[in-house]
Amino acid sequence: MTEDQNELLESEAHPLDGFLREGRIPHIFCPGCSLGSITNVLIEAINESGIDPKKVAVVSGIGCTGRIAGYLNYDSFHTTHGRPIPFAIGLSVTDPERKVIVISGDGDLFAIGGNHFIQAARRNADITVVCVNNFNYGMTGGQAGPTTYVGQFQTTSPYGSLEEPFNLPNLAATCGAVYVARYTALDVRRVKEAFSEAIAKSGFSFVEVLGSCPTTYGRRNQLAEGKKILEFFAEKTVLNHDADTRDIRIDKDSPIIVGKFVDIEDKPTLTDNLLALQRVSQAKKGR
């Protein structure tokens, strides 16, 4: 351990002081939950983007991941269940300079809020959407959700889940997202890279982070510690940027394919189109 690192350990200050809201810590996350490290790299990515912090807004829905916005010391919005994306669109189009980041869970973004996700991707809304996928509804006690894989045990799938889960990167890519990546919470370096790239992108960028939820997912599926879930990821993850998103569904036994699957340049965003419309309509005198 170097002297610098020693100093850091003894210091009462945290390197991210100032980026977390004073008085909001301790957070509500369970031991072994990956949301802490995801929050950490999200802040680093925002920081390193060079965007004026005044121009950053973070929006969440409801759930464990939904709490992240409220810990961050940017303009932060903890909205209703499933609705962070349209709220973010309202924030985004009212200031083309504003960088709006949505961070929320799989249930929030893809069950109750699923329609908003696909429509925002179709519109190419100028927002970054991060989904922390923990394969279940954590905050409400571990119910099955739209990303629960077949055979997974949850409180509402006591005999094992029957339904095909969403393949989130494929959904995002199909609906028109300009940037799509998936990594696991084990690989925070790549998660951070993906956050940085997504934030730098104009248009609808999407990052799926496979998270660890030992409390309500893990203990019903022989992965009762955060570490075990991360080891499970280490064992199963295969990096393949060139994968066809149609082939990267998650199931119980197959490898988990991670990577950057989509990165499209220069597609006009919703905001670009609205601004162009203003110019055109002002040049005409009605129809």
């Binding site: 994306i85 973010a88 669109i89 309202g90 924030l91 189009v93 429509q119």
Partner: peptide, 23 residues
């Protein structure tokens, strides 16, 4: 110089205008 967005439903519409108001 304003914006009109036709949302996917009324839920998106109301939460969208709340976002715009905070904008």
């Amino acid at each position: 110089g304003g914006n009109f967005v036709q949302f996917e439903d009324e839920i998106a519409s109301i939460i969208g205008i709340l976002g715009a108001s905070w904008g």
